[in-house]
Write a protein that binds this DNA or RNA. Structure first.
Lengths: 245, 245
DNA sequence: CGGCCGGTTGAATCTCTTCAACGTCCGTGG
DNA sequence: CCACGGACGTTGAAGAGATTCAACCGGCCG
């Protein structure tokens, strides 16, 4: 037996096996880590799945740990004292989940779909941040991206009509989920990852208004529905027009 | 003559004279820099003032440079194709102004009041970021703070009534500008740093609605006005109630 | 003085919400 | 097996809240 082959099988350049096929290593924060750091991290990390609706915060799931999203969609929600809710962010794979340097986020994170995560203790990451500037750089980049997205959404919340809001939402999901949706004029097919109630909380509307606007998009032929979830967009460009740019 | 005294007068521990009384050195990003870095930076930095309404972007003022805000308020605006506007952020001293790692921000920055800035070339900062992790850490902290603020505001935009929005705005300004406004039950006095039009663009409302809601707060005794700008809040707590938490 | 800018106020309109009823899907239990 | 209940979604009618359009006021500058 060849020890070199054995070593390669187990470590493959020193990269832990669990990380080998992980998207977070390419596009996520783990890309900033060395093989040794990945090895250290993988010893305390664990992959797990959460069902739709499961909360990630207040269950020792996030306060004391960070996670990478491997698949699925996570929604970040803020709630007013009287119960009004607003979704303030959606996170897709391979986003990093967690708020460094702050214990209480005042935000609840919830699985919008079935979600699989790779979680690790806060302390290990916080130490690695201090040791390797590359990681902090990755975090800064992701945070800037989230800030850009939040500001884009502020325009939608503050200045768009209900019809434009719903179109903007479908367009955003299409771009995130459907690989083809990029070039204009193309079509797109995908599933909406959220209920009408979630969409309403995301758009600052009521369930009824969301439903009516989706119906309108359907009767106008901008989208084709089945399941109330599965969407076909014949022309992404036409949808963009409805989104008010 | 004593050379030690001379040296102290000019350099004072090596810290450049222009930086000595600068707030950014304490609470801003410059706090992460060594005396030598400050010296390097101060050679290419320049302090200047901008009048209200002056744009900071697209005038070689920001695209190729970053700035620290020394005084005044800067508004960040996004505009839709048809002219609808939304203010997506307000920055106060000693905030850092500029978007690292990205040439085009799709955001315009404008002086909401008279503003004084300390500006430096993008290239110098970008290099220092690479050299000193502390600076990147400061930037990450500020970006996280801005993200928190953006998300707070998303709740206001999406889920609050016009009355609550205006109260929230006045409350936010009070907390930023008036030193006393912290503890509940206290009173506060300050000037609104923006026109009604700006406030409307910030809250996703029309000028008229903003005006009506301010009038209502005035007739209800929650605020006392003069100048349409100067505000006295007898009880911050009562204002908080109007803001819907 | 006249015009413009920023702000206020009123009346009509419209968009979105509220309230209510109804339909469908799906798992549970008789 | 089918009836029941709940979650999710759609649709309609009535109502509230914000916008639109318009008039008006005061201050400032040319």
């Amino acid at each position: 037996m060849n020890t070199q082959n054995l070593r390669k099988d187990v470590h493959t350049d020193g990269t832990p096996v669990v990380c080998l096929s992980c998207e977070a290593r390419h596009r996520g924060v783990c890309g900033a880590l060395t093989s040794e750091q990945l090895t250290t991290l993988s010893k305390t990390s664990y992959k797990h799945k959460l069902g739709e609706g499961h909360e990630l915060v207040g269950e020792a799931e996030k306060v004391e740990s960070y996670s990478n999203i491997l698949s699925g969609v996570v929604k970040l929600t803020k709630t007013l004292a009287d119960g009004r809710q607003q979704i303030v962010g959606l996170q897709f794979a391979p986003d990093f989940l967690g708020r460094p340097f702050k214990a209480d986020s005042e935000i609840t994170a919830q699985a919008a779909t079935n979600v699989s995560l790779c979680s690790f203790p806060k302390s290990v990451i916080d130490r690695m941040i201090r040791e390797s500037p590359g990681l902090e750089h990755k975090l800064l980049e992701q945070t800037l991206k989230e800030l850009d997205e939040a500001r884009d959404w502020m325009v939608t919340l503050g200045r768009k009509t209900a019809a434009e809001k719903v179109a903007s939402y479908i367009l955003m999901i299409a771009r995130h989920i459907d690989p083809e949706a990029g070039p204009d004029g193309a079509s797109a097919t995908f599933d909406l990852p959220m209920t009408r109630a979630d969409i309403a909380d995301f758009l600052g509307l009521t369930i009824e208004t969301v439903s009516r606007q989706i119906t309108k998009l359907r009767t106008d032929g901008v989208i084709v529905l089945e399941n109330n979830r599965h969407v076909f967009v014949p022309s992404v460009e036409r949808l963009e027009l409805r989104a008010g740019s």
